[in-house]
Nucleic acid binder design. Sequence first.
DNA 1: AACCCCCGCAACCGCCGCACC
DNA 2: TGGTGCGGCGGTTGCGGGGGT
Length: 437
Amino acid sequence: MGRTPCCNADGLKKGAWTADEDQKLIAYIQEHGEGGWRTLPQKAGLQRCGKSCRLRWANYLRPDIKRGEFSTEEEQKIIQLHASLGNRWSAIARHLPNRTDNEIKNYWNTHLKKRLAETGIDPVTHKPVGPSSTPTATAISSCSAAHMSPQSELAQPTLRPAASASTQAQLLNRLAAKLAPSKCLQAIKTSQNLVQVLSTEAEKDVVDVSISTPDMPKRPISSTSARLLNTMARRLTTPLHCLNTLKSILSGSSDDQSAGNKVIEPYHDFMHRSASASSLSEAASDMSRSNAISTHDFSPLMESFDLDMLKDWNGVSDGGVSSTSMGDTYSSCWESPVSPLNNFIKNNNAASTFSGSESIGEVNDALITARTYDREMTFGHTQYDYYFLDGFSNFCINGVSSCSEDSHEGKVFEDATYSWNNDPFIENYQLPDLDIF
DNA sequence: AACCCCCGCAACCGCCGCACC
DNA sequence: TGGTGCGGCGGTTGCGGGGGT
């Protein structure tokens, strides 16, 4: 059929725009708005192709464009998004407010791609280039040291040598991320004394979840927690560093649901205390001595881990999406069967009514009344926003996804990477006046 | 001071998807 | 149902500035 050229090249100017041309374009758009690009040049008195006008406006003249240096946060975000979205610059740009796809593309090509390559990471696959050039932890750190997420920090020594180790590392990372204080991370990283326990028990497919600490007698934890621990354990077949710590924490839990309904405070307390404790064990012991912790069931915490390990979305979300078509965009409030936040959402209608595109900005706007904190999470080509309300284990999931695959049903999350921005929420968090458990 | 080379980035180009007729 | 117009996207180009010699 053939297409007419977008503009007649005769007499049309090309190349750099002059200030005068910019002014004409700005003035016209301010008066008439965007659109009608084909006829715009003539109406605006510009000897330019309409496409050129659109591009000039979209990439340079638009008043809401943020220009200049990319922050480390932005860099990290671009890398994370590129790992899951590839060269879909416009999709990436939607997650970086006021940055244009062109600018991000340029920045990637001139800076980030190069930097990743220098650190031994293939900028296309985002994986180490060859076994002999596996990047060192130092190299990785130098790539984005200031904002390396907790799980990445933890995973540095091994850097995914095998799929099983990757899964294990991610689980540990998630644990570490939830127990964000750096001293806790250090404690986890340096704890070596339970390396064999879980792997040995995992082979038997049964794990003894009766645990004890020096401060507390051995006693069973909740059946729910036990089940989840077993679920975790079965999936971990190689040395695990943090089990001891985990057991210490869980030793404070019980099955007594009726006795411990108010649990936000213990969670919050734990975070607060563990930030100053010398180790996770110390923090856990500290918490174990409190009345609150002795009546608290940590199953929500464990279930949040379980959530990450579930391989079937249907098992995670009974109100969500089981499959999507390529390119589909959808949004929904995910009703995790384990998250008590479901009740919060239902009661307050905070998130369940929002709808929109995959723009994070819209999502944030929709949830701002809940004092939310968002974590971006990308699984393959799917993007989710997790909204943490207490920064620890209570969350709701608001899925806004654009899949580039035919379906994500049954997708395994083994190559997921995470980008965290903890500080604003943690520092500014105020306990909601809600009993959400 | 002049020349050269490299790099960053604005702009261009071709293609694609969607809406409309 | 297919042709057409339009906007958008991603790859690429080439200009201009800065640094090195």
